[in-house]
Amino acid sequence: MQTRATVDVSMVVANFNNGRYLEDFFHSILNSTSQPREVIFVDDGSTDNSLIIAQRASDALDHVKIIALSKNVGFANALNIGIANCSSTYIMRMDPDDVLLPERIERQYEYITRDALDVVGSNAVIFHDSTNLPIGRTNFPARHADIETTILRGEHGVLHPTVLGRASFFKNVPYIQENVPAEDYDIFARFLKAGARFGNVAEPLIHYRIHDKSASSRLRYATIARTFRLRDTIFGGYTSRWKIVSYYCFIKSYRNYLGSRSVVSKSLWGALSSLCYPQKLVRKIATRTVYRPGR
């Protein structure tokens, strides 16, 4: 393997039964232009072949450290275990069913150290596992002020699996298992309240996989409601039920819009999304991707 620069980054991965995706995941690390100091792979009691594949990867990548839990403790708890075992100044989040683009580590490390930020995310190409074709891309704000405004609205200012952040924040403001699957909004809202400075790389740096078992495909009203309740608790204020319902309808409709393969259904879901949240839909449609996942 070609020698590549190693940067002061610990990548933390929590895995549960993602064996079918792990070869792609580890291959994308192998192909990165910069390497993390360590990859902390926490297997959360998987019952598939995840550990076999991870062990094979650790033979090729000697900085992969496997923590095999004897039972499933939950996503947030598994992440906290991984974070507790990190030794770097910065922690990079990644989900094992996604794929890094080659320059992700290099670009984000350069960005966060150059601008003295605390959290740096990026955009992502969204693709569906069944077709391996792109169905969209994210459009997160780049500047701290805009990210702050987004989080204060009760929306996501950064995409969780794209984040690189200071280890001190992750260790002092841990994940809360009871807030899963809204743990990502919760932790970055608490980072913001603790004084973290945010940024996002404008271009996509990961390929974000949608499949039947992904959180994106199984979005529930309760997750959106919990997110807004967390916002109200952390920052004060009150979110009406109508706001929660309308935002949930927008998210569900937009994801159906992305997944639709016919012009008719795409138009119908797009129209419904527009009724629920017209300003955001316009921004999202304006950034529809022309990329193809480089697998």
Rank of each mutant, 00 (worst) to 15 (best):
A194R: 04
D232A: 04
G236C: 03
Y248V: 02
V180P: 11
S240L: 08
I206D: 06
A222R: 10
K193M: 11
F191W: 06
V201E: 07
K243D: 14
P204F: 05
C249D: 05
I244A: 07
F198D: 05
E183G: 07
I244V: 15
Y247E: 07
T233K: 12
L205M: 06
F191T: 11
A215Y: 14
A196D: 06
P204M: 00
R241N: 05
P181N: 01
T233S: 12
S246T: 09
R226C: 06
E178P: 05
N200E: 00
Y208W: 06
Y185H: 10
I244G: 12
L205C: 08
T227K: 03
K213W: 08
A189W: 06
A182N: 12
D212Q: 02
F198S: 05
R220K: 15
Y221M: 05
I234W: 00
T223C: 02
V245Q: 11
V201P: 10
A215P: 14
K193V: 10
V245A: 13
R229G: 12
R197E: 15
Y247P: 04
R229N: 10
A202Y: 06
L205F: 08
N200S: 03
F235K: 07
G195A: 00
I210C: 03
D184R: 00
K243R: 15
W242I: 03
H207T: 03
I244T: 10
C249K: 11
K213V: 06
Y185T: 10
S217V: 06
H207Q: 01
R226F: 03
A189K: 14
S214H: 00
I187E: 11
F250Q: 05
A222I: 13
S246E: 07
R241H: 02
I210Y: 09
T239R: 07
D232G: 04
T239G: 05
D184I: 03
R241P: 00
G199S: 12
A222H: 07
H211T: 04
F188H: 15
T223V: 12
E203T: 08
A215G: 14
H211L: 05
S217C: 13
R209N: 13
W242T: 02
R209V: 09
Y221G: 01
V245K: 11
Y208P: 02
Y248D: 07
L205H: 03
K243S: 15
T223Y: 04
D184E: 14
R209I: 04
I187Q: 08
D212E: 12
K193R: 10
V245R: 15
P181T: 01
A215C: 14
S216E: 13
L219R: 01
T227N: 07
G195F: 00
H207D: 13
V245G: 04
F188R: 04
E203W: 02
V180L: 05
Y238E: 15
R218N: 15
V245D: 08
L205T: 11
W242G: 00
R220F: 13
S216C: 12
F250V: 10
V201Q: 05
A222V: 14
H211R: 01
G236T: 02
I224L: 13
I206R: 00
L192E: 10
H207G: 02
S216A: 13
Y238M: 14
Y238N: 15
S214A: 01
R220A: 15
A196W: 07
Y247G: 07
A182Y: 09
A194G: 04
T233M: 11
R197Y: 14
Y247L: 13
E178S: 11
G199K: 01
V245M: 08
R241E: 04
E183T: 04
T227F: 00
